[in-house]
Design a protein around this nucleic acid. Sequence first.
DNA 1: CGACTTTATAAAGCCCCTTTCCTAACCCCT
DNA 2: AGGGGTTAGGAAAGGGGCTTTATAAAGTCG
Lengths: 414, 414
Amino acid sequence: MKRTSRDIRTANRYEVLRQIIAASPTSRQELAAATGLSLATVATLVGELLDLRMITEVGFEDSAGGRPRGLVAVNASGGALIGVDIAETYVHVELFDLALNVLARADEDMRPGESLPEQVVSHVAAAVGSVVAQAGIEGARVLGVGVSVPGQVDRATGVSEYAPNWNWHDVPLLDLLTEHIAYPLYLDNPLRASAVAELWFGAARGRGDAVVVNLGTGVGAGLVLGGGLHRGVSNSAGEWGHTTIVLDGRLCRCGKHGCVEAYVGASGIMLNLRELSPDSTLLHPEDQTATIAALAEGLRTGDPVAVKAIRDTVKYLGAGVADLVNLFNPEVVVLSSWVAAALGEPLVAEVREAVARHALPRPFAATEIVLSPIPTDPVCLGAATFALEGALQSVGQRNAKRTTPARSRTAPPS
Amino acid sequence: MKRTSRDIRTANRYEVLRQIIAASPTSRQELAAATGLSLATVATLVGELLDLRMITEVGFEDSAGGRPRGLVAVNASGGALIGVDIAETYVHVELFDLALNVLARADEDMRPGESLPEQVVSHVAAAVGSVVAQAGIEGARVLGVGVSVPGQVDRATGVSEYAPNWNWHDVPLLDLLTEHIAYPLYLDNPLRASAVAELWFGAARGRGDAVVVNLGTGVGAGLVLGGGLHRGVSNSAGEWGHTTIVLDGRLCRCGKHGCVEAYVGASGIMLNLRELSPDSTLLHPEDQTATIAALAEGLRTGDPVAVKAIRDTVKYLGAGVADLVNLFNPEVVVLSSWVAAALGEPLVAEVREAVARHALPRPFAATEIVLSPIPTDPVCLGAATFALEGALQSVGQRNAKRTTPARSRTAPPS
DNA sequence: CGACTTTATAAAGCCCCTTTCCTAACCCCT
DNA sequence: AGGGGTTAGGAAAGGGGCTTTATAAAGTCG
């Protein structure tokens, strides 16, 4: 709420690093042009990042008369970031270098019974240990671990306030993790993780207002407003999945009726398919992934049942996304998470059409609807980005107070 | 998007003046405590406002040992602000002093046929002339005129991009108004006007995130996010009224089906009533105001039809507001505009219950739902506030370059 | 009437960004 | 090979903002 000139610095630091990661190697001039900052500011910021060894000088640009531009690039080996995506049935952990390339990956499956925090924590700890070992990184180089856990999260205290899938209430997840993991930890939820991933590296880069729609088992939206994440007063903004789209409609697992998630979440889609064609071969009961994959394949081959099932789904999805367009008037709506990735461009095309029908023309005209361009798990990437932000933030902290060395007893007044 | 230290100054200037208006008279100390700024900063800001004659020193607080605190108060006669609320059937204009008291008011009715921009403009010009004459204000004291017009507005160029009620497309309203009105003009739409009114003077004061729900003939939401208005990329965020609440539901005047507005706008409520009891005496066909007033009276007296009609309406309204709570996770939801004002506290109580049923428990627990505390037309007040903001903004502009007075030819080096 | 307290203003310091100036580095040309 | 011309990058100066500290001003109380 209270803004200070330091916030400006932090934002600029983010912006410069973001730009370097996006276009490595690059020159100070390019950075200044891209960020709108003055050369002097860019130079100091670049200096800072060089001091931190997060970037390095990598040579010079060819010049056609005049001093050649010095080039800087991400110092990939300057540190490592770990992103943890905890979901209902799995834990994905990825270890990134500073260029946000995946250096190592570890997945753990969780059996349906495993719902105790301790069980989840041990999976996470194991996977984190694994990626560090795989990558052969010395611990000191890990700048931080970002952890995404579904549900409502208090990121300040690191408490999972409520996780619907395991019925957790106020689990002090960060404290539990701290016992097993020695690196700085950052906790948030997948909605915000994927939003920040898009903001730094994906389709929301450089956009002021964007909505990242997560289509997975659960459904929700990450909100980028005014160039930053919108969290809401209790860090639970973006619960689009439990927005009502059909009053008194289908029962949702949240206990209410007619939620968006009940129609466009993975199991909602399965239900749509079942209602359309109860014994379609596309349907793999009890296996969301397989069913969605089958639908995707069906879309590709033009299987009429698949096409119709998706069309039915998009009827709801389009209306839901149109609501977001009307409410937020974003520059871009990004479709993310595994269902969106699986169904791909055909889905997006359908969604565009449906949104055009439902949204107001002006806001619709102002917004693009795109698929997430992030090739890996956006939640892991976003979680790692939280760690990166954390590492950059602490740069801004006041440098250790300069201790005026106590002068030794010297001559008394003569 | 680009933040500079000047924005901080502007925000602080707003904050201090806001606080003075809210608690006049007040001391610098109180202001510092309320705003979180240092005394020195408050003192300079107060000095600035004193120089502008927007506030005055009005004496001292009694002291119990120590220098007494100087008190400042709004200089009500330091200027006048005009708010113009253009709606489908009327133009309301109010003239405010700097304490935002209404000094004069003028209403013009517009007959259904009058839909040409020129006609509307002439009504506005007449009403503005009228309030200035009534208040006996010299023109120079009018700091600005804020104009609210329904639909989508480009505030930078002053163009009404689209006004559904008159089917306007890209009407250069501000240019037309400039020909008749000599004061600085500010254009925006009623959603944002009422939101800014709540932000400065109403239930959203001091809140970081608030949603102002407008329940009138039209329906929409003003969004206060991160302490400021959220406009979206084309200044049309907040179109909650045309969000889908019942897929394939009632036809809305926007041409789509199942919009929130079709159920909870004034004519939607009338339709709810008609469906419930087609020949209720509460129903005044063709007269929204009378019908809503009758319903309000019925609520007071416990008329079962009125109670049921409102309950039916709240079924939709509650779900719609719950969607806002889930999506934005605001601190407060403010119910505003004439329908909300007319139905009053009984409506709010029903809405609270309904939202509790529809929203997720955590976000719901974090948000209050209240009636707008603004006693007059919030849209006029908000529009005037735009003018006030405009006047304060221009303070920040670079002061006229200090011309170093050319020294007259003096003695040459002796 | 002096001591103590509290307020208000002035001064100094820090943070941030930008503009300006100057040197460094490189190309090309003679 | 050694000057121009040109561009990059850093250092210094300047401007805007906020805060802390010092100082002056204005009371009360003993």
